[in-house]
Design a protein around this nucleic acid. Sequence first.
DNA 1: TAACGTTTATGGTCAGACCATTCGTAAGTT
DNA 2: AACTTACGAATGGTCTGACCATAAACGTTA
Lengths: 264, 264
Amino acid sequence: MGSKVSLRLFKPVRAVRLSDVVADQIRQLILQGHIEPGHRLPSERQLAERFGTSRACIREALRQLEQQGIVEIRKGARGGAFVTRVDGESLASSLTLLLKLRRIPIQQVTEARLAIEPVMARRAAQYARPELIEEMAAAIEGMKAHLDSEAEFEHFDDAFHHALGRSQGNPVFEFLAMALLEVIRDAFSGIDYGRENRRRLARSHARVFNAIRRGDGVAAERAMVALIKGANRWLAPFVASAAPPSSSEERGKRLTRRGTRRRR
Amino acid sequence: MGSKVSLRLFKPVRAVRLSDVVADQIRQLILQGHIEPGHRLPSERQLAERFGTSRACIREALRQLEQQGIVEIRKGARGGAFVTRVDGESLASSLTLLLKLRRIPIQQVTEARLAIEPVMARRAAQYARPELIEEMAAAIEGMKAHLDSEAEFEHFDDAFHHALGRSQGNPVFEFLAMALLEVIRDAFSGIDYGRENRRRLARSHARVFNAIRRGDGVAAERAMVALIKGANRWLAPFVASAAPPSSSEERGKRLTRRGTRRRR
DNA sequence: TAACGTTTATGGTCAGACCATTCGTAAGTT
DNA sequence: AACTTACGAATGGTCTGACCATAAACGTTA
């Protein structure tokens, strides 16, 4: 028996996929800064030769890295895998996918935003630098100037929240907040809120902004709460069709939560 | 000129990768619940035949889905692509990657946790169900019982925060909080805090838990702030070597943030 | 100078083969 | 009967080599 057990000490030489090893190695190079964003990786054929594998293997690795958002593949001459400057997009899509798979009602995302964005508004009132105040102001103006176009309006809405995120002095807030916003955007994509709602939204944003500009953190926090709750209120009709509950488990959770929220 | 411009109306029939189309289609099937978690997709050869593509193409699609964490590939007879029940893991790894690439100091992650976890503690004091209180109690006991093993201790630490997350009545909080915790874990993986620190940590957790159990939201919130700040204090020495700044830009940001934090 | 082919490097796709692993099962052994 | 072993089949993992499609650079011509 002793001789048999000792076999466990020998680990398999290679139980992993080659494409994973390749992807890991490239990822590490990028992580350690050996390849800067914007730069190009060698061509698939060169990589295959260098790693001593087939092209198919390299391609599988690249699919992985592409999915993670750390490289972008362009085809044609002078094409190839380019290292991208990663933003929160892949985090957002990861969260979106997770919430969709779990069939989380959009209301709960709003609830999470309600815990985070007001804090960010308060922080912004304290920390926001002039150039970011400027950016927010421009976003507000943009919103007011495009009440007739959902797409344009949304762009400036995004711009405002983005500036808010960047004014935290801490990118983690920005990433999380933008991911949550992106989930909302995804859920309501293609829906036109209507001019009246856009006007209200612009005014709510302006109230938040004004509080931030004059450095009134408490007011900014309150205004942000009002903004999100307000928007959520007139967004509700759209929600019903957008996120139907599926399993009884989910429905149960929702009812429970609703009950508890009322207690506030 | 008119005839030329009209050409723009014709969109390319297929400028996308086949593997993307395949991945999208499978993802949709899973998203719409046509394939349940645990079930197996057809074999690569069958999929290739069904989609009318090559196996290489199918494999690239599977690499994508695997990276997203929605399928798990097993090899050998009765192997194949199995639909997984997606948890927050892929969200966590996505966040970890993003923060590493941007070289975000771990301190800023702590700052974000400081904005979220205390709120969760407060909410838990109001909403937590008996079985989750039970779970937290067990986690606290586990921590106390394993002060001598970093690995075991960490497991129960995780269990506590997990229970805290699940007691929100809103999975979004849970996902975000666990992702942030995972980033911390990743940054300090393999480090032994030492028995004394583990003892302190267990006591801090116990204080949070006791407040939650007696339904005292305000105290729970305060205790959680103390927990995170306390842990962060004695964790600082480890940080220095764990997250070296690289670009001057990043260093600038850090100094700025430090300055602003002091103003609190 | 501007419009238009041509070349070329590169990703995208394919077909077919063979290897490695895993599981079920049948045969053999105790 | 129970256990062990050996084999077969299904499936993912990898390779080879070819060809197509695209896009940028280059040269050519009006």
